[in-house]
Design a protein around this nucleic acid. Structure first.
Length: 145
DNA sequence: GCCAACGTTGGC
DNA sequence: GCCAACGTTGGC
């Protein structure tokens, strides 16, 4: 397989949580209305891994998902300008990684989650992705890695 | 094309 | 509930 990319996406758990994703099995990752976030969505490839972050109420990374369909028109967007991707759950983190932990970790202090608080879809380096898994005491199975 | 006003997001 | 950051809108 081609080189994977690693992403982090935000969701408000009151609207749609990682647990909801596990229940439904997959979702359109839609509703993104920001050009930089759209650019990131458009760059996602099938097999890329995404960390799922709960904003507002819990402020922690809670799970890992994978992209199963690349960017297509956002079904919630009547103007057809915006895109969505299909995401399926991979596994929940054994221990959620709080925003505070991310900020207190030197290797992560510079990621977009911290630097650019309002961006909802961002690229992570493989090292940053792995570091968050480590903090979450989580190892991915070889099949998804 | 600049920039003030305003709206939204999201941390605190 | 407040406010900083930042994107968008609209007057000039």
């Amino acid at each position: 397989m081609a080189q994977k990319n690693y992403w982090l996406v935000k969701t408000e758990p009151g609207a749609f949580s990682y647990q909801d994703l596990e229940k439904t099995g997959w979702t359109h990752w839609d509703g993104v209305r920001n050009h930089q976030a759209k650019k990131n969505l458009s760059a996602m490839k099938v097999g890329d891994l995404v960390l799922i972050y709960h904003s507002v109420t819990s402020k922690e990374v809670v799970g890992v998902g994978k992209i199963t369909k690349e960017a297509y028109p956002d079904p919630t967007d009547e103007t057809k300008k915006w895109v969505a991707v299909r995401v399926e759950p991979v596994q929940a983190l054994k221990q959620p990684v709080s925003l505070q932990m991310v900020k207190e970790t030197p290797a992560l202090a510079d990621i977009a989650l911290v630097r650019q608080a309002r961006l909802s879809v961002m690229l992570l380096t493989e090292a940053a992705f792995q570091k968050i898994l480590d903090l979450g005491k989580t190892t991915l199975t070889a099949a998804v890695r």
